[in-house]
């Protein structure tokens, strides 16, 4: 399978390997050492690293600057871009900025609503939606054109991704929406954290039935739970998250000091099961503020060493 960009992630997937990605959340400050420390923990165990864009609408160091730091360390960043904070001029401009540093992966998102963050009185933008941003990046890359129609000198070489939540309401619309994202130009998909494996498999079956897994690489999203408290929080407080009761009770029935270990077990078991699901092209391990566990998860799940491409 030929590749269209210099992206290592694209090459890994094209070669038929299971991809492994993880994420680094930039700090709420300007110290680059924070992002570098996180990156150092995961660098040998993943193919590419997502850098979140003001996640949960809390103001942070910008994703692009943190991506540049990772790039300078020799890692492969995935620039997350939300449409919440920037209009179409700023989005296109930041894509060019990223391309100027040869950042060659982008994940197009709408973003958490600002009411969850530290600027609840702020104005959201949503000049484009995530689907329109996908199409914009593809047009910039494939046609070398800005949205306004002008030519781009040295078009960005970006491998373009989107998110999908197989668990949000209404379930019936989730695969339709995936199909629309694929049509708009998504080449890889990173899913919401999967705890309800049965429902995820149902969604994958629908995606396969529509031929979508042949057109897009689906990376299954996983977040290890540190504690029963975190599981309850994810279940009750995080929008669009589906955490079955048995996951919560398995952690709650474990002595507190053993809960992190069981959380990792649950994550590794999920990867093992999902490896057999046709169409799952890899894993996106989001160990939130727990980056030191990514290596262990990747190794225990038999995904180490990472292939050279």
């Amino acid at each position: 399978m030929s590749t269209k960009t210099p992206s290592r992630l694209e090459k890994i997937l094209a070669a038929g390997h299971r991809a492994v990605t993880s994420e680094c959340g930039p700090p709420r400050g300007s110290d680059p050492a924070v992002i570098e420390k996180k990156a150092a923990l995961i660098r040998d165990h993943v193919d590419a690293v997502n850098v979140t864009d003001n996640q949960t609408s809390m103001t942070r160091m910008c994703s692009l600057a943190a991506c540049i730091r990772l790039k300078q360390m020799g890692l492969e960043p995935i620039l997350q871009m939300v449409t919440r904070d920037r209009n179409r001029i700023a989005l296109q401009s930041d894509i060019l900025g990223a391309a100027a540093f040869d950042i060659c992966n982008v994940l197009c998102l709408s973003g958490d609503h600002q009411s969850f963050g530290d600027c609840a009185q702020g104005q959201n933008v949503h000049d484009l939606d995530s689907m329109q941003l996908l199409q914009t990046v593809r047009r910039m890359r494939d046609d070398g054109k800005f949205l306004g129609g002008d030519d781009i000198a040295r078009p960005p070489q970006m491998f373009v991704g989107a998110a999908a939540n197989p668990f949000a309401d209404p379930f019936e619309i989730r695969v339709l929406r995936l199909a629309k994202k694929v049509s708009a130009g998504a080449e890889f998909i990173q899913t919401q954290c999967i705890y309800n494996l049965d429902k995820f498999e149902q969604w994958m079956t629908q995606a396969r039935d529509r031929g979508l897994t042949e057109r897009v690489s689906v990376l299954a999203g996983l977040t290890p739970m540190k504690s029963a408290g975190m599981a309850r929080y994810m279940k009750n407080r995080v929008p669009g998250m589906d955490v079955p009761d048995e996951v919560v009770s398995r952690l709650a029935d474990t002595p507190k000091e053993k809960q992190p270990e069981v959380g990792i077990d649950i994550c590794v078991e999920a990867i093992e099961r999902l490896k057999d699901v046709e169409g799952v092209a890899g894993f996106h391990i989001m160990a939130i503020e727990w980056e030191e566990k990514v290596a262990e998860i990747v190794e225990r799940a038999g995904l180490y060493p990472r292939p050279e491409v």
Binding site: N124, H126, S130, A168, I173, R177, K180
Partner: peptide
Amino acid sequence: SKQLLNGPCGGAERG
């Protein structure tokens, strides 16, 4: 809430 034109975000729960 996000003025999305191409379908829902991933945040809706129980409608």
